[in-house]
């Protein structure tokens, strides 16, 4: 359940930015979660419900935006969409691709008032 620490970090980040904006309330959060981020979206949803309680984010809606992976083969340079971290390159069957996208775990934006 590291998703709970992650949810709490999201709320903390949002609180920080909301304070800078002198906002009273956070009404929406946009969170990017890569398929290879190591986070289970369902668990994060559940953890968010707990994490927002009693915070400036209580009552906010959150959008979890999935980020699908993109990899570049380190042998032949081919770019492809891997389904797992151990999928070989479809062009040359090499392993050890550079993950260009899909490991994101980012708070993209919040709406405040």
């Amino acid at each position: 359940m590291h998703e709970l620490s992650i949810a709490m970090s999201i709320v903390e980040l949002a609180e920080e930015y909301a304070a800078k904006e002198h906002a009273e309330k956070v009404t929406e959060l946009e969170i990017e979660v890569g398929d290879f981020s190591g986070v289970v979206v369902d668990a994060l949803e559940f953890a968010m419900e707990e994490a927002v309680k009693g915070s400036i984010c209580e009552g906010a809606v959150w959008k979890i935006i999935p980020v699908h992976p993109l990899a570049r083969c380190s042998s032949c340079g081919h770019t492809y969409q891997p389904e797992s971290l151990f999928q070989p390159c479809p062009a040359c069957s090499g392993f050890g691709a550079e993950i260009l996208r899909g490991e994101e775990l980012r708070l993209r934006s919040i709406m405040v008032e």
Binding site: I6, S9, I10, E12, L13, A14, Y17, A18, E21, A23, K25, T27, E28, I31, E45, E49, V61, W62, K63, I64, L105, R106, L107, R108, S109, I110, M111, V112, E113
Partner: peptide, 27 residues
């Protein structure tokens, strides 16, 4: 409480947007 994480909610969200673009584990 409804799970309000809808992907297609209408424009009922109020307020102003603050762009953050920050890694959640940055701390």
């Amino acid at each position: 409480h409804e799970h309000k994480h809808s992907h297609d909610h209408p424009q009922e969200v109020r307020g102003r947007e603050v762009v953050i673009e920050q890694n959640i584990l940055s701390k």
